[in-house]
Computed example of a mutant assay.
Amino acid sequence: MRAYWAFTKKELMESAATYRLLILVCIFLLFGVMNPLIAKMTPQLVKEFMPAGMQMVLPEPSAVDSWMQFFKNVGQIGLAVLAILFSGMIAGEIQKGTLVLMVTKGLSRTTVLCSKFTVSVLLWTVSYVFCVGITYGYTVYFWNADEIKNLMPALLGVWLFGVLLLASDLLGSVLSKSSYTSLLFTGGLVAVMFLVNIVPKVQKYNPIRLVSEPSGLISGSLKLSGFYTAFAVTGGMILMFLLLSVLVFRKKQL
């Protein structure tokens, strides 16, 4: 356990030194400010750039629009940034040769994986909480948020999908010696999810629902009970990826 905490501390310090933490927090803080502001200003911008003489009745922006903007920005750009930043969790250590030295001195490979995954989830969680908090504050300031439904489950779904991407990055990094291959592995996983989602009978099991349909949850057009299976499958995939990472990494030649 002492080795786990020591390696985790080392990973946290390295994340700060390499500006990974700073980049992640800054991007999600920016999203937190942008989400409600874009929802607030969009109707005005549309009117400004509308051709002369043309009239269009636009609905007044609401708290729902702010959170829809949140799920659009974070669920697409934010998660892509997350996957890119952590794509070389193990591959980078192998390429630098630092991991070989630590393992030969008795550091458990399982400890390495657990520490890497813990730090990545921690940084993702901190950045995500900042983004949610800022979006929530501005949304409550501009609008009445009483109309929002199932906000916490919708937010939890996006966070859980982010953890799934991190677990996929970890497995991809273990399977290869390149961060690019790891990123392709995660990108391929997401692409398969989108393709499988075409089949109606499979949709309720697909983790991609957690990031593609949260707007339906907060608007009330979709029921929360329809997402329970997707939550369970996502959790199961995370555990499976972590287990596979441990099994593969134990036999991997460094």
Rank of each mutant, 00 (worst) to 15 (best):
Arg2Asn: 14
Arg2Tyr: 11
Ala6Cys: 05
Ala6Trp: 12
Phe7Arg: 04
Thr8Pro: 06
Thr8Leu: 13
Lys9Val: 12
Lys9Pro: 02
Lys10Arg: 13
Lys10Met: 06
Glu11Trp: 08
Met13Lys: 15
Glu14Ser: 07
Glu14Arg: 07
Ala17His: 11
Tyr19Pro: 06
Leu21Ile: 13
Leu22Trp: 13
Leu24Pro: 04
Phe28Arg: 00
Leu29Ser: 09
Leu30Arg: 02
Phe31Ala: 01
Gly32Glu: 00
Val33Asn: 02
Met34Arg: 04
Asn35Val: 01
Asn35Ile: 01
Ile38Lys: 06
Ala39His: 02
Ala39Asn: 04
Met41Lys: 02
Thr42Trp: 06
Thr42Lys: 03
Pro43Phe: 11
Val46Met: 07
Val46Ser: 02
Met50Phe: 12
Met50Gln: 11
Pro51Glu: 14
Pro51Leu: 09
Gly53Leu: 10
Gly53Ala: 14
Met56Tyr: 10
Leu58Ser: 05
Pro61Asp: 06
Ala63Val: 01
Val64Lys: 12
Ser66Cys: 12
Met68Gly: 11
Phe71Ser: 05
Asn73Arg: 05
Val74Cys: 07
Gly75Arg: 12
Ile77Arg: 05
Gly78Leu: 01
Gly78Asp: 02
Ala80Leu: 15
Ala80Trp: 13
Leu82Glu: 09
Leu82Ile: 09
Ala83Leu: 12
Ala83Thr: 13
Ile84Ala: 12
Ile90Val: 15
Gly97Asn: 11
Met102Ser: 13
Val103His: 02
Lys105Thr: 10
Lys105Glu: 14
Leu107Met: 13
Leu107Asn: 13
Val112Lys: 13
Cys114Arg: 11
Thr118His: 07
Val119Met: 11
Val119His: 08
Trp124Ser: 14
Trp124Met: 02
Tyr128Gly: 14
Tyr128Ala: 08
Val129Phe: 12
Cys131Ala: 10
Thr135Pro: 05
Tyr136Thr: 00
Gly137Asp: 13
Tyr138Lys: 00
Thr139Tyr: 00
Thr139Met: 00
Val140Leu: 03
Trp143Tyr: 15
Ile148Lys: 00
Ile148Gln: 01
Lys149Pro: 09
Asn150Ala: 05
Asn150Val: 01
Asn150Phe: 03
Leu151Arg: 03
Leu151Glu: 03
Pro153Cys: 03
Leu155Glu: 04
Leu156Cys: 15
Leu156Tyr: 07
Val158Lys: 01
Leu165Gly: 02
Leu166Met: 07
Ser168Thr: 15
Asp169Thr: 14
Leu170Gln: 15
Leu171Asp: 03
Gly172Cys: 15
Gly172Trp: 11
Ser173Val: 10
Ser182Glu: 11
Ser182Gly: 15
Ser182Leu: 09
Leu183Tyr: 11
Thr186Glu: 03
Gly188Glu: 11
Val190Asp: 05
Met193Gln: 08
Met193His: 01
Asn197Asp: 15
Ile198Gly: 02
Val199Trp: 11
Val199Glu: 04
Lys201Gln: 09
Val202Asp: 00
Val202Cys: 03
Lys204Leu: 08
Tyr205Thr: 11
Asn206Thr: 07
Asn206Ile: 08
Asn206Leu: 09
Asn206Tyr: 05
Arg209Ile: 05
Leu210Val: 04
Gly216Thr: 14
Gly220Leu: 11
Leu222Pro: 01
Thr229Lys: 07
Ala232Trp: 10
Val233Ser: 06
Val233His: 04
Thr234Ala: 14
Gly236Pro: 07
Met237Phe: 15
Leu239Gly: 10
Phe241Tyr: 06
Leu242Met: 07
Leu243Gly: 14
Leu244Pro: 04
Leu254Lys: 03
